[in-house]
Nucleic acid binder design. Structure first.
Length: 675
DNA sequence: TTAGGGTTAG
């Protein structure tokens, strides 16, 4: 190396921006120093893989290298492996082989990283064969890269096979394997491996412990999580973020917040973790406050945070914040991503604005299975069963493969309109045509569908033939169906099993009691109430909220204090009267007390008032006349007034057909409000 | 020049 070359090389080593690099490159060209292989290789490396890399610039340089050696090829493969087009790394590798250069131990880790980012198996398996042929299967770096690739593809057994074949496993191999299990949802296995690692005297570091924290978070293993915290304290931001996430997911949201506040430097992921922690704990106000705090600090929220905030709105039913966030996206960014679009569809659907959800869905350029699922599920939730089924056909025509969530939406849709035959068809289709084995949730949907349609013995038979143990949701569906169809015997059986599983679930007592009430078995009603009392179980009072112009109005059963209560109840009385003229007769058999018919009817209509208001049947806007909104319907079971829409104020209205509605609170019908 | 770690939608 000449004196000039050495000086230029030194300058290149201190180069920190693309501009400087380009200037130094110009110097090299004008002084003919670019013919020096060391100089050119350094310029190539900086343009291809540095923090300020420019891939097309690197490609231009590479093309001018006459006979690139393995080192230069590696440089390009490495650059492509991290680029948005990882498949280019593979074609570069092929060109390298054609050019006559051989891969070395550095080539494969880059190449395998590219493969891990592509759909399996593509060329990944072929690269694995090359690894073996070239004799690099004993290289520790290559082995870890192979484990990583298979694990990322979800082929955890292949990954484990590679792992098992390593005679001297280093900490990186252990970490890759443990993390592979965490990604695949094998949390217990991850922790088991971590313990084996300890028994083999491999000292854990913060990287492997970060993965183990992920397993603790998902298993709710606060004890192990705390132990890890005690072991390392609060290391770098990645480890500390995993700690915050672990505490939040284990329910210790306050500890998570303390840690978050203590962090000297907060990056976007840390903010996301804290906000999503609040959303998960149903602390929506805190989540939103933190989101605004972040925005006010001029930190640009990324996709993850926005998705979190929107999903918080979907769950809390706070459409105002949802719309604010939607507006924020429209103002600050152009098109929204698949994830944000999907979250918006879900939010609008759950907040009752299915038309807005549909418009967003139609506008989305790119859709994945989640987007279709959100829309199908949204339509099903709104009782638009046939639209949901049509969309399912469209989805298949578009080439998107349905998954297990899709079928939950489809079966829910069938349940809405009592499509028993179609329900069976889709249920069977799942495994036969799509290779998806029905899970507990699908069985619960089928039991619900059959049960509601009056096919109680078929529903019971399905439960008896399930390949897994039925859970509380499945028995709950049967109990509810038994209540609807007045089958006391079956209701008792379901309730008994349910109470074994969930002795404190007041909904079970309510449903059972209602079933006895329908059968006029007042002594049994009384017994259930005594049982509840002796077990210290109290029924939470039914409550609905509606937010009008930023003010939340709560309507609790029997509470007559809401704003404009007098007007509302007067309106309601006239509504009930009109309904009577229209031929509506309240079905009072579900009311539990052995009271006069007239009194029952009164209770029913005035229970319904809060729902009528909640669901927008009666406008409560200040100054606005109390109008009855169109599309009034009555729930045959619980007599609520409902509109052809649903709101997710912690409750859902599920529509079966034009004049038959059912009002649910996550699995148990709130008809139980009529105590 | 090479391998391992944190979040997020249905």
């Amino acid at each position: 190396m000449s004196h000039n070359s050495r000086n230029l090389y030194k300058l290149l080593q201190t180069c920190e921006s693309l501009n400087t690099l380009k200037q130094l490159h110009a110097v090299a060209v004008t002084t003919s120093l670019s013919s020096d292989p060391f100089i050119l290789a350094k310029i190539l490396a900086l343009s291809a893989t540095s923090a300020f890399s420019d891939l097309s610039y690197a490609q231009q340089i590479f093309l001018r290298i006459e006979n690139p050696k393995t080192h230069e090829w590696n440089c390009m493969i490495r650059a492509f492996s991290a680029s948005s087009t990882p498949q280019t790394a593979l074609s570069t590798y092929t060109q390298m082989l054609i050019s006559g250069e051989s891969p070395d131990n550095f080539t494969f880790p880059f190449l395998l990283r590219s493969c891990s980012r592509l759909q399996p198996p593509r060329s990944g398996e072929l690269v694995h064969v090359h690894v073996i042929k070239c004799g690099f299967d004993g290289d520790a770096y290559v082995q870890s890269s192979l484990i990583h690739m298979y694990a990322k593809w979800g082929r955890i057994l292949c990954a484990h096979k590679v792992f098992d074949d390593i005679t001297a496993k280093n900490i990186v191999a252990w970490t890759t394997m443990i993390n592979g299990y965490v990604r695949a949802g094998g949390f217990e296995e991850a922790i088991r491996l971590f313990k084996v690692m300890g028994s083999e005297n491999v000292k854990p570091d913060e990287v492997v412990l970060t993965s183990v924290l992920g397993a603790c978070a998902n298993l709710g293993d606060l004890e192990l999580g705390r132990w890890i915290h005690g072991l390392l304290g609060e290391k770098d931001v990645v480890f500390s973020t995993a700690l915050v996430d672990m505490y939040a997911k284990c329910g210790s949201i306050d500890v998570a917040r303390e840690l978050f506040d203590r962090m000297p430097q907060k990056d976007v992921i840390l903010w996301t973790v804290m906000i999503s922690g609040y959303v998960r704990c149903n602390c929506f106000r805190e989540a939103f406050n933190l989101f605004r705090e972040m925005c006010s600090e001029n930190l640009m929220p990324d996709e993850g945070i926005i998705v979190n905030v929107i999903s918080g709105c979907a769950r809390s039913g706070d459409i105002d914040i949802g719309k604010w966030t939607h507006h924020y996206i429209e103002v600050n960014g152009a098109d929204y991503s698949v994830m944000i679009g999907t979250a918006l569809i879900d939010m609008y659907a759950k907040c009752g604005e299915i038309d807005v959800a549909s418009r967003i869905f139609l506008r989305m350029q790119e859709k994945n299975v989640c987007s279709w699922n959100a829309m199908i599920g949204g339509l099903a939730m709104h009782g638009e069963a046939y639209s949901a089924l049509d969309l399912f056909d469209q989805m298949q025509r578009s080439g998107t493969q349905p998954d297990e969530i899709t079928f939950i939406g489809i079966l829910t849709a069938c349940s809405q309109v009592g499509l028993v035959g179609k329900g069976w068809h889709y249920f069977n289709c799942m495994s036969q045509a799509h290779g998806i084995n029905p899970k507990l949730e699908h069985y619960a949907c089928m039991v619900d569908l059959l049960g509601r349609s009056g096919l109680l013995s078929e529903a019971e038979e399905l439960i008896n033939n399930m390949p897994m143990e039925p859970d509380a949701v499945v028995w709950g569906a049967l109990l509810n169906a038994s209540r609807i169809h007045g089958n006391v015997e079956l209701a008792e059986k379901a309730a008994e099993l349910l109470l074994e599983m969930e002795p404190h679930n007041h909904g079970v007592y309510v449903l059972l009691s209602n079933t006895y009430g329908s059968a006029k078995r007042w002594d049994d009603v009384d017994n259930v109430r005594k049982l509840m009392k002796s077990r210290g179980i109290t029924k939470t009072r039914g409550c609905s909220s509606i937010k009008v112009n930023g003010i939340v109005h709560d309507f609790v059963v029997g509470d007559r204090s809401p704003v404009r209560a007098k007007e509302i109840y007067e309106k309601l009385d006239s509504l009930v009267k009109d309904l009577g003229l229209m031929g509506y007769v309240a079905k009072t058999s579900n009311v539990l007390f052995d009271i006069e018919e007239e009194e029952k009817e009164y209770q029913l209509s005035h229970h319904s008032e809060k729902l009528a208001i909640s669901f927008g049947l009666i406008s409560t806007s200040p100054g606005a006349p109390l109008n009855i909104v169109k599309n009034l319907r009555i729930c045959e079971d619980c007599h609520c007034f409902a509109k052809l829409a649903s709101k997710n104020c912690g409750r859902r209205i599920i529509i079966r057909d034009l004049y038959r509605f059912h009002h649910f609170e996550r699995g148990s019908c709130t008809c139980g409000d009529y105590w």
